[in-house]
Design a protein around this nucleic acid. Sequence first.
DNA 1: TCTTAACTGAAATGATTGTTTCAAATATAA
DNA 2: TTATATTTGAAACAATCATTTCAGTTAAGA
Lengths: 193, 193
Amino acid sequence: MPKTETFNREHVLEKATEVFHKKGYNGTSMQDLVDATSLNRSSIYNSFGNKLNMFIEVLSYYQQLNNSDFNQGLSKSYNASEAIKIIFNINLSRILNDNDRKGCLIVNCKSEMTNQEPLITSFMEKHQDRMVAVLEDIVSKGQMEKVFNEEQTANQYALYLFTAIQGLQMTGILNKSKEDLTNLINTILKVLE
Amino acid sequence: MPKTETFNREHVLEKATEVFHKKGYNGTSMQDLVDATSLNRSSIYNSFGNKLNMFIEVLSYYQQLNNSDFNQGLSKSYNASEAIKIIFNINLSRILNDNDRKGCLIVNCKSEMTNQEPLITSFMEKHQDRMVAVLEDIVSKGQMEKVFNEEQTANQYALYLFTAIQGLQMTGILNKSKEDLTNLINTILKVLE
DNA sequence: TCTTAACTGAAATGATTGTTTCAAATATAA
DNA sequence: TTATATTTGAAACAATCATTTCAGTTAAGA
């Protein structure tokens, strides 16, 4: 009986992500989203509820894209040291390709909304837990393989790496020198040796 | 002949800074600023031009406060290693006192507006140059004093430290554990030894 | 004291905000 | 083909947006 959705939901999310990424949550209007998705106003409200809900779907979509990039890269790594380098190199190439200085959508959102929207706060807490868990796993393996030192616990190093990635993403907004950034990453990773 | 400003400009900037810091640039309305400063609409436009101009004055005001904190701390340091630790400890105590998870206004603004407002872009470039110069100075002294290694140039370490501070500020939005953050800072500084 | 230029207060500007409404169009299941 | 649930399009909603206007108040120089 129901008429099914005629638009491609993923394509709509992709377009909405572009806008939110470029302009931020508060800088994006419903009209911007209508224009970008070429969807009707009421279709957006019908399918996504409201602006905040749509944004949360966008965040998840963006996070999922990031994750599959990481997983794809990590599947090719044969040791912990390689794995960490792959994660940082993925971030490096994102920075170098980010010609319009948008930065990372998740970091941007964390600084814009974590203190305003409880739904965003818990998203960010889960995001950090997930990222730290992934990093902790890798560091832990590296410590067993004796390629990383054990001066700090794997969990402590994981929080350090998570922090470094956020810092790298912030620095990468203005600094696009591949040489500088590569050197920066080497310095960051030195402490693990 | 002119009637002079009756309000205290610094007090107004302080109140405006609070609002912008809490809600971000796009999240703050002129009405918010009128309420916070208890200044009349037209007085604000008379004295600050427009919203963006007022925000830029707020940014400078905030930056100036930060700088005087740093200078006050650094004047008490007797070597380079102390100096770096003081800078990180100032950041640490700011994080621990930031009960409403606002983060750093400059970092927030960098991620919200650098790709949208040329005036902000150049502010951020100058800010980075200034911070890196200060850090480079300290690292350079530390290398001469042989308390820091010379595996990287002072400038490279300065960019690393600048990046680490930004990362620390991002992590500090959600993580307020003094133990975790102190450990994190120690890990960050280890590479200099 | 008078003039003058700046400041102040309140109201009004038109544009834009997020969201709702509702009739018309549509596609599926019977 | 018909009944039905859903999507769609366009218009309308009140609220809020940043900014302007302007008459009235104020204080300093002559």
